[in-house]
Nucleic acid binder design. Sequence first.
DNA 1: CTGAAAGCGCTTACAG
DNA 2: CTGAAAGCGCTTACAG
Lengths: 344, 344
Amino acid sequence: MRPERVTSSDVAKEAGVSQSAVSRAYTPGASVSEATKEKVFAAAKKLGYQPNAIARSLISRRSNMIGIVMADIVNPFYPAVLDMFMRLFQERGHRVMLFMASRDQNIDDLLPRLLEYQVDGVVITSVTLSSEMANYCAKLGTPVALFNRYVPQAEASSVCCDNIDAARNVADLLLDAGHRRLGYIAGVENTSTNQDREYGFTSRIRERRMPSPLREVGHYTYEGGFEAALRLFAGEDKPDALFCANDIMALGVMDAIRGKLNLRIPEDVSVIGFDDIASAGWEGYRLTTVRPPAEKMVELTVQTLVDCINDPKQPMVALMEKGELVVRGSARLPEQLHMPHAQG
Amino acid sequence: MRPERVTSSDVAKEAGVSQSAVSRAYTPGASVSEATKEKVFAAAKKLGYQPNAIARSLISRRSNMIGIVMADIVNPFYPAVLDMFMRLFQERGHRVMLFMASRDQNIDDLLPRLLEYQVDGVVITSVTLSSEMANYCAKLGTPVALFNRYVPQAEASSVCCDNIDAARNVADLLLDAGHRRLGYIAGVENTSTNQDREYGFTSRIRERRMPSPLREVGHYTYEGGFEAALRLFAGEDKPDALFCANDIMALGVMDAIRGKLNLRIPEDVSVIGFDDIASAGWEGYRLTTVRPPAEKMVELTVQTLVDCINDPKQPMVALMEKGELVVRGSARLPEQLHMPHAQG
DNA sequence: CTGAAAGCGCTTACAG
DNA sequence: CTGAAAGCGCTTACAG
């Protein structure tokens, strides 16, 4: 009952050429005459033929597919990142096989399901890879690139935002603006992004001999941030400035501060986030935040991966890009930043 | 230089069985003895063997891959939908090949790139399919399911939200609440979702002998909604209630109304959206909106597609699910809805 | 339950 | 430039 598939042999017969000729007609740069090509394409059109990419992948040992593993699609930062990856890979003629991982899910169970489809390379986002699995991929000759994660000395390349550096800058900004009681809203605690942002923030505060920041966990979600802010302000010791490990929590924090606690931002409390997601720029929030160079990071990740695919001898790289502070209205500023025109 | 692939023949040799036995060991339900299986798996483990899904796809004529075409990933409704699709397909053991389409891009150019990989079925979201292309897929025997779009009398199944019905209910709610000058913020004008929502809204208003609503186009984006609201209130004839074709525009509208126009919501203006995206529920917005039964729609789409894959004789279906009005704080309510406890 | 063999639909040396 | 042939790594009748 299944409709008959049209194969290259059918086209060959129709066009009066060999099956190899049909194959060559569809291979850019293959040695075929224009005349043969024309005959082939005419026959192909007549029969409704299209080459079978699965058969091509099998014989050529190149699937032209890239596996992308994502988690955390709830955080708007990642759909934007996925979109960029998709555009780049589509432009380059790669197909993308997508996998969603829960953040708690072990990615080691997921990878074999990707690898059995002989993907040419793998991009892993917002999930950590065990070094055993990285080694396994390396043994199969399938390059892996990590986006926004890194594995110490593993067989995988990585492209990250310099979270520590950016978080140190946030601490400086807040302290320079005259804040004295800082707070940190943590994301998911065991992620490297959270750990690095927290480390950069707190270590810089210590370096400047200020008291350790208050702290609550917001699990990288709006609701988590909202509740964390409420808990933080329920205590005696109230913060006057909050650094949130990502934007989506920061928005929850802002809504809690203004809507529930009836405090003003930034007059009573400064709030700074991380990611620069679209809603951070909305009129209702105007969140001051750190913008990772997402586009550049994605491009570097793709480039790195493609290089490894084309030349398996490519060494692994670990790239680190600086984030940029986007100053909007949710945080008080040091005088010199606040009124630059008053200086000159 | 490419690492040698381990094949079923290698495993067979190692295990001292035939290549077919290896294949059977990996085929659930195939007739193999436990003893053989054990030998095979031991050898496979030793050699690091994993079946090649590409080869399996070629011979079995089933790729186990589903193609998903998405556009409009900027609208948070769609990442959520993609996430649901991914979970369902992953649970069922399907792989997903993802394609992103620009909204202006013709999907007819994209589909052949999917079909050459012999996907078992295709899900198309937020993009319309030409009926020629639908017929082409049908001829190839590749079932297609449209999510939130439909093609009149085409060879594709579809699962939609009843946009017309929902929009009529919105008109009723607003009129019953005493609003007299309604406005409509359109999305992308040539999409079926926009057309149906607009038609339902305006036709119901006409039926109730009220003046046609004011209208501006917001292109389904936050910024578009923001600007559209500004334009609408710049005129002499100002609306007292706005229905926005999706939530993300509604949030822009709310920010413009409160932040730029200094009007109160809902005291001065009511705002209603469509989609019930996560941010619609945020404290800062509390948007009254229409919630399409997204989860159910996704499940139906998957079920429909899988049914068609398993039985090509399955008839096409066109399913229509009702949306649900989620009442929050952004719209004035008719008395009976407003104070239900005052009635009894 | 098991193995030998055919074949899925291509690409690519090889020889002409 | 062209065709005949081998082979990618599997599944699946077929016969035992």
